[in-house]
């Protein structure tokens, strides 16, 4: 599906991705984690062509991403970012913007199919009831759901999300991620998600990559990647990992310095 091989990219000599290789399988939900400045955003921007690829290649369904036209790319790859740019636009119009990659020059009006798809995805993401409302009237979580509906309207092969939940409360975080998981399960949509919260990553991703200083430190299943040794090394911080009794996935606990000093003799793992 998405094949990143020996990718080198970056802004300056100071920071570059160092020969990153990652395969995202069709139908998978892959998560990328890592501390600030580890290269997550640089990787994201290489995928969206916002920065130049200096070496290696990215293949999307076997085709070099550099050789796709912007329209072709937008038909295969849909993107949801941290913040959704909002202004006084009705929700329905906002979602319909996802059909832009399919519009011809001088095509002023949407076709019946465009409306059908917009309605379908607004229902699927649960924002159909806000259809006529303005984007500015919705909460941050609802705006994110609308942004996902718009991305789905692009009928993409791959959905790329850049920390879509980082500004949301826990209920909306779960709402958004449950939706993404449902899209992944029910529609077979391949998802690549950059995510800060290790517990959410552990809970939702079926494959993970942990980045560190511009390269991939560890990739594999959540239980392989989210080992306390990996986390402590990459994040340079002390954590406690246990298994979530319900999902059987690793769960990470943070400890304050004060508690840590008091219990320095206690075994942590």
């Amino acid at each position: 599906m998405l094949k990143i091989s020996k990718l080198i990219s970056g802004y300056s000599d100071k920071f570059r991705l160092k020969e990153i290789s990652l395969h995202v399988n069709k139908g998978s939900l892959t998560g990328i984690v890592g501390p600030n400045g580890s290269g997550k955003t640089t990787l994201f921007r290489s995928l969206t062509s916002e920065i130049n690829i200096l070496g290696g290649e990215i293949l999307l369904e076997g085709r070099d991403i550099k050789k796709l036209t912007s329209k072709e790319k937008a038909q295969k790859l849909a993107i949801v970012t941290q913040n959704t740019e909002v202004f006084d636009i009705p929700v329905e119009d906002f979602v319909l913007m996802g059909r832009l990659p399919y519009k011809k020059p001088f095509q002023l009006f949407e076709k019946v199919k465009d409306y059908a798809l917009a309605n379908k995805f607004m229902k699927l993401t649960g924002v159909y009831k806000y259809k006529a409302k303005l984007m500015t009237e919705l909460s941050g979580g609802e705006q994110q759901l609308v942004a996902i509906a718009r991305a789905l309207c692009q009928e993409p092969e791959l959905l790329l999300l850049d920390e879509p939940t980082s500004h949301l409360d826990i209920s909306h975080q779960l709402k958004v991620l449950n939706l993404i998981q449902k899209l992944n399960n029910d529609l077979g949509l391949t998802v690549l998600i950059i995510i800060h919260d290790l517990n959410l990553a552990s809970e939702y991703c079926d494959y993970m990559a942990m980045m560190h200083k511009g390269s991939i430190f560890k990739k594999g299943l959540p239980e392989e990647v989210l080992d306390y040794k990996n986390i402590e090394f990459v994040y340079d911080t002390v954590v406690i990992t246990q298994i979530n009794p319900l999902s059987k996935k690793p769960a990470i606990f943070l400890v304050s310095d004060k508690v840590l000093k008091k219990n320095s003799s206690e075994p942590r793992h």
Partner: peptide, 15 residues
């Protein structure tokens, strides 16, 4: 119309 979302997001929509 896409530029209303900002340059980066307009690019994401194939502009």
């Amino acid at each position: 119309n896409a530029l209303r979302l900002g340059e980066a997001k307009a690019k994401h929509l194939g502009v």
